[in-house]
Write a protein that binds this DNA or RNA. Structure first.
Lengths: 135, 135
DNA sequence: GTGTTTGCAAAGTGTTTGCAATTTA
DNA sequence: TAAATTGCAAACACTTTGCAAACAC
């Protein structure tokens, strides 16, 4: 990878998002290393620790913009347990019930030979997601 | 089925829940006919329409008790979109994105020949749930 | 400069809880 | 009568929004 700064900046510009200080900081935290599952609060804390104070409102707004722009996926594990996933490829998840943590399952690891169609309506499948809860 | 009243009463007593007026009313609405996906608010409204006023707090508490007792399953579709499912057998769901409605997929309709194990921990799989979003 | 973005505080949504009053067994 | 349940209102966690100030281009 080139330097993180320009990598993030380019990602943002590609999607028509201005590379503001806040978006750059959050982007850098999200995309510094491999795939991540982060909650809004976690990211807010990380930003604070990195001396990049960003308000909670901005964290939420930014994460939603990133999701909208296709830069992140939202994963809802439970009521009040929402993660933002930097892995935007189709994939599945293990959920560790003890901790609430997630682990990605690459799409090709789960084969579903036949996907059924709904009875009631035309089938225009937009996604298939599998959650495997373990404890 | 015998009469609904005693059917519900028995269900409750079996799980150690007293058949109070409120629980009987909510149970009757839930189990009158085939399987249902109901939100707390929906059920609250239905109870009101059936002239069985039950407070919102009691609807929530009761639904949670029913889930705890294994009489219902909770299905979270989106942040702030939680359903209570009277189908307690293992199964999967279609989610209609337009309406947020659910349709059950019987477990045997979705075959996953090989379930992977998580990398990081011992695999003690408690459930596998598939959500197919359609629009 | 002009339009976009931010941060705050306030509002919103869906859900849970403390507690006095009521109901059930 | 003793223990469980209910309903209210308040509290809650998480998220969104309105708007003035700050920023990016």
């Amino acid at each position: 990878m080139v330097d993180l700064e320009s990598f993030v900046g380019q990602k943002l510009r590609e999607r028509g998002l201005r590379p503001t200080r806040q978006r750059m900081a959050l982007g850098a935290l999200l995309w510094a290393n491999g795939d991540r599952h982060v909650s809004a609060e976690q990211l807010h804390n990380e930003a604070k620790e990195a001396n990049c104070a960003v308000s909670m409102a901005t964290v939420y707004n930014t994460l939603n913009q990133f999701v909208e722009a296709g830069l992140l996926k939202m994963v809802i594990v439970d009521a009040g347990r929402t993660y933002f996933d930097t892995n935007i490829l189709p994939h599945h998840h293990f959920v560790f019930e003890k901790t609430g943590e997630l682990e990605d399952i690459p799409a090709e690891k789960i084969v579903i030979p036949h996907i059924p169609s709904p009875l009631s309506k035309e089938a225009d499948i937009s996604s298939v997601s599998v959650m495997i809860r373990v404890n």
